[in-house]
Nucleic acid binder design. Structure first.
Lengths: 202, 202
DNA sequence: TCTTGATTTGACCATCTGGTCAAACTCACG
DNA sequence: CGTGAGTTTGACCAGATGGTCAAATCAAGA
């Protein structure tokens, strides 16, 4: 392992290549289903070379997840208490749907982890995610109290947004098996927009 | 392997125990993450004994999936063209949500398979599922044409129901991390009911 | 160019995993 | 209770897999 000085050009390049490859492999096969050889091959490195940059398979997975957590939570972070309620929520939904379209591997990485009980990110869920959601549901409840949006269970409102948007990334095969050649997001965007306009109208 | 006569008492008992154990293990770890030893231990059998009843790990998984597919599609099958549109759809949703609550392992079994690209059930998706969904969306479209429910993209309407109901089984850890001790389904049922009443009102 | 730390690799290891097999055991029934 | 089919298992195997290591190669600054 290199010293903990500033990373060299090669270190930067290879670490990035490894994380990119790991994202492909872990999101497609889950932690257990991914092999170090597979990730190394995809990154264009030999297995020992890969393990020169990360001490273990687990370490790659952890680095990947914690590196992506911020990206993953960013859309909700942006929900602004001072903005127009309906517009804020609909923008949040649009950002989430856009992430499903543009970052489906990231979505499936988390989906894989969650569906198997989140053994490696349980803590992040109960701390970071829980805190963020609590913060934002306070805003939602406020808006409901002020009559700006319909009164609903705020947690389930958030869950519904996650479910509806991430579904298109996580269960992409199923969606495509049914839609055929039709672009999933072409129909999804107006559908979900309509849904929340109707749901949230006070 | 036993002859293909009628199964003996022991065969029935052990095959059932194996499938039950396999459901536990596959739904919690995915196909690749599950081991034959684990399934055998959970079923109270030795590994060779388990492989006396099923020729391979793959065969157990296949038997499990195809045995559960009917159960899984049953709620949608029941959607009746002659019933009251709003009531038919809301009942379908209630049945799906009930399955999430009562059969979360089954839900996660399919979720695991889907999120990893459904390598073992791709055919069932494009055939059985696609046909069933096409059949039922025809009914939905008919109801829309008759002005009985709001006009929406019928496929995305179905997707939304799957997403919203299965979310509670598939991402159970996440839901519970945020809700704490609150029963997820206590809030989910009225929330989803309200959502679809508002969405579908013509 | 030389040197030294950074990088890369072939060979190797222990463990895990799916699967096999012959021998031993059990059970139902005549 | 004897017998043959049905059931169970310990021992074993081959290949996959995560990880190690010493030796070889490379790159950049003095």
């Amino acid at each position: 392992m290199p010293k903990d000085r500033a990373p060299t050009r090669i270190q930067k390049k290879n670490r990035a290549a490894i994380l990119e490859a790991a994202l492909n492999v872990f999101s497609a096969h889950g932690f257990r289903g991914a092999t170090v050889d597979q990730i190394a091959a995809e990154a264009g490195l030999s297995k020992p070379n890969l393990l020169y940059y990360f001490p273990s398979k687990e370490a790659i997975h952890t680095a990947l997840l914690s590196g992506l957590l911020d990206t993953w939570l960013a859309p909700l972070h942006e929900l602004d208490a001072d903005g127009d309620p309906m517009e804020e929520i609909l923008s949040y939904i649009r950002r989430k749907l856009q992430m499903s379209r543009e970052l489906p591997r990231e979505s499936r990485l988390f989906a894989n982890e969650l569906v198997q009980g989140a053994p490696r990110i349980h803590e992040a869920l109960s701390n970071d995610l829980k805190a963020l959601v609590d913060d934002k549901t306070t805003i939602l409840t406020q808006w409901m109290d002020e009559g700006k949006i319909a009164r609903l269970h705020p947690y389930h409102l958030i869950f519904s947004i996650w479910a509806l948007t991430q579904h298109y990334a996580d269960f992409d095969v199923q969606v495509r098996a049914i839609l055929g050649n039709e672009d999933p997001f072409a129909g999804a965007e107006p559908f979900i927009d309509t849904l929340y306009r109707k749901l949230l109208k006070p």
